[in-house]
Design a protein around this nucleic acid. Structure first.
Lengths: 332, 332
DNA sequence: TCCCTCCGATCAAACGTTTTCCCTATTTGT
DNA sequence: ACAAATAGGGAAAACGTTTGATCGGAGGGA
């Protein structure tokens, strides 16, 4: 790496002169100025940020934010919440792991190595051992997962309760044969949502039916089509996310059934853009994501300052009712 | 700010011992170890990242990415493109300006002050003077806007061509009375899209009709409803973005007209999630956003290394045809 | 000629760590 | 009991930059 010293040597001047030229500070003759600039360019000089900031006595609090997919508005909101709290004084380094667990591990280690003062991990599939290891050095905030390590705080949504709310709502609107299109089982969130659904069904004396589907529109569409064709009796669908719900709605429409008159549908996540544009608009369970991001940042700052109070934050979802669960029309 | 020296003084040991304890490196007696840890905690010690990295001879190339709204998938994709190219070696500091021009200016200055090696600005409404000033120190990449400064590269989408494509497509599918729901005029992109629309109309000997609307669904809905009620003759809509197009579609449906049989609709941006979920699915002009982000990062790296070749990159949009512009049914 | 000023450039300290080398006790081995 | 090994700790250099102090010399005024 080329430093000021290298430039100084080649241009036959002192280091401080070079520094002054590059920063346009003190007074330097036009001749030397040009010469130095020239040499700097030739050598491809890139200033060393650390040296500069140390010399300038700049101190920055830096926190890392690792998320699986910045393209997804859900994580966008999370990021925004964090940045809002951090304002312009705390540096947030946001990195997208592209849902690649290896890359995630690498960037987390990198963040640690670079001296981040704390890391917020927005992915509940994160490697437990890694969290444990990192938390030995700096505080960690994780979403939707429990840890009992000293230096780790969990921020979770009460997924089970959200699912319970949604299912109960469907039942109260007159739908009886409510099925659940769930995620694959390994995930904490899909497990919890399933639990809530089952609890609500049992409470009303109905028998739950759960179909593992996945997470995108296509999957929801295919599964729903299959179920309808098979003659399965269904008048309500609680889906583990909005996309799957929208897929299911497409299948229902294609099959010639009316929403919400014949079948009611409720999603999860409340991606507003999506839910409101859909026709009929989609009822969904709302997560206060941005607020959760803000809390994550606040907690992180508290941990860094050693003024942490709580070890776990639980957020409550709320149901946003739109057209898709408007109530069943009973055939006379 | 508390430093190792402070801890050392209070704990009555040397700086190097403190460092060793905090990093778990050399050997230190259990007694001192505890003591030092205790003092460090009480004083609220936070390591100085710059000093550490300098000492460790770590060098990082840092580039700042400033965007107006990380919640928007469009900017999410941009961000992703940048991060993809930067990989794990170049540090990307992404900051959301919340569409607040003042905040934007502040964060850009901050980035400069912190020693970022380059800044990518994802907002065409950015302050020109600021760009000029910043570019005196470090390279800048800007989207959708032209600059002639030495150290600034523009990455633009050929908005005019995209609009032209969309409009021509509508005309060729049999729609004659194609209107344009445009943005407000101050923006470069809305100006260009309008131009393209007008060019296509004139080319076919039709007279363009442009209505300034805005950027969200509600605005599109209201304007379209008003136009339909007023009896305006319309069988085609080219909208300046997808949301406005979806609003217009809602109004059209409500008015009892069929899409695409009576009225054809084309949007802009091609927000896939939105366009495909809509029913009928929405044709739209696609911007290769992620690719543009990748290019921005590559160009930035080139500029930093002094190996820049081109001063301006123009990307071509492409039309994605879906159901909403399927062709007009002629009444017999 | 001498003194003062000002310009251009250099010197050297400082920023906060890490890390290598070195010193002194103490322990271990014979 | 004496040499050798080792544990515990400190001194100091190094990382690359910024910046105030300093210095030599040119030019100007008396």
């Amino acid at each position: 790496m080329v430093t000021l010293k290298d430039i100084a040597r080649i241009a036959n001047v002192s280091v401080s002169t070079v520094s002054k030229v590059l920063n346009g500070k003190g007074r330097v003759s036009e001749k030397k100025r040009r010469e130095i600039l020239q040499v700097a360019k030739e050598l491809g000089y890139v200033p060393n940020l650390h040296a500069r900031n140390m010399s300038k006595k700049v101190r920055i609090l830096t926190i890392g934010l690792v998320i699986p997919d910045i393209t997804n508005p859900f994580f966008g909101k999370l990021t925004r919440g964090v940045q809002k709290v951090c304002g312009e004084d705390v540096l947030v380094i946001t990195v997208d792991s592209f849902r690649d667990l290896d890359r995630e591990e690498r960037v987390i280690r990198k963040l640690l190595f670079l001296g981040a003062h704390g890391i917020i991990i927005g992915n509940s599939r994160v490697n437990d051992e890694l969290v444990k290891e990192v938390s030995r050095y700096i505080p960690v905030v994780v979403f939707d997962k429990d840890y009992e390590y000293e230096n780790v705080v969990s921020i979770v949504l009460d997924n089970s309760y959200g699912a319970y709310l949604a299912t109960k709502h469907l039942i109260e609107r007159g739908y009886r044969n409510v099925i659940h299109l769930g995620g694959t089982h390994e995930l904490y969130v899909s497990l919890k949502r399933r639990e809530g659904y089952e609890a609500a069904m049992r409470e009303k004396g109905l028998s739950p039916r759960v179909y593992p589907v996945g997470y995108d529109e296509e999957k929801g569409y295919k599964m729903m089509r299959k179920l309808l064709k098979s003659g399965e009796e269904i008048d309500g669908v609680f889906s583990m996310n909005d996309l799957v719900a929208l897929g299911a709605m497409r299948a229902i429409r294609e099959f010639g059934k009316k929403i919400p008159e014949d079948i009611g549908v409720v999603g999860f996540d409340n991606d507003e853009e999506l839910c409101e544009i859909a026709s009929p608009s989609l009822s969904s369970v709302h997560q206060p994501v941005e607020e959760m991001g803000e809390t994550a940042a606040k907690v992180m700052l508290d941990m860094i300052n050693g003024t942490l109070k709580v070890r776990k934050y639980i957020f409550s979802p709320r149901l946003v009712v739109r057209e898709s669960s408007g109530g069943k029309k009973v055939n006379l």
